[in-house]
Design a protein around this nucleic acid. Sequence first.
DNA 1: ATGGTAGCCCTGCTA
Length: 260
Amino acid sequence: MRIATWNVNSLKARLPRVEEFLGYAEVDVLCLQETKLADTAFPALTFSALGYDSVHYGQGQWNGVAILSRVGIEDPSHGFGDAHVDPYEGDARILAATCGGIRVVSVYVPNGREVGTEFYDRKLHWLGSMHDWIDATHKPTDPLVVMGDFNVAPEDRDVWDPKKFIGSTHVTEAERKAVARLEEWGLEDAFRRVYPDSDRLFSYWDYRAGDFHQHRGMRIDLVLASPPVAERVTWAVVDRNARKGTGPSDHAPVIIDLRD
DNA sequence: ATGGTAGCCCTGCTA
């Protein structure tokens, strides 16, 4: 079983690239973030024609998350539920569904903008609420994968130049602790399981200043898997070709293979 | 000092 996550930075602008990706990548499950579409504009029929069932949780102009699957898609749900505060209430940032026996969660964590702003504080709050929601509704023994754009680089080796990021969002102790808390709960960074000793393996490159071609990137798109899923991981890759060519997203897909 | 690009829609805001 092959699963993948991709922040597409507008599915309307990126649909040809997503169709192309589905044509060669042989993914069974694909989580999308930043579709920037209303649910009524989501191209479910296009995906259906390619063999994928899909669910979408969108709001229109911003955010928006989706799950595509060719191994079934059941019991979709979105948001944290009434028991947990969503400091970005109204934003379409989290969607879950069961695909091929795994509870799959597609997440788009708030960016945080700048340290010291209310946006940064709400990002940390949002990550805390996601932890509490996961803890209240799942068990580490469940087959669970939480994947998407976390807007956090877990370690210094996950950014192109740690010195350049001092004082910036995505790398602060508090953000990293929020991700580490998910790992303490039982989720494992599936990409790191395959590449425990590698550095500078990025999933995002700013559009500006030729960052992609200068290898100035960050690894902020994560696949966090519970033990029953993590122990099935056989392979992982960032599809850097999807970041090249005409009209790419600023993120590349992260692909994880699981043994059956 | 604050660039550089892309995508959205109130050609400014968000990333």
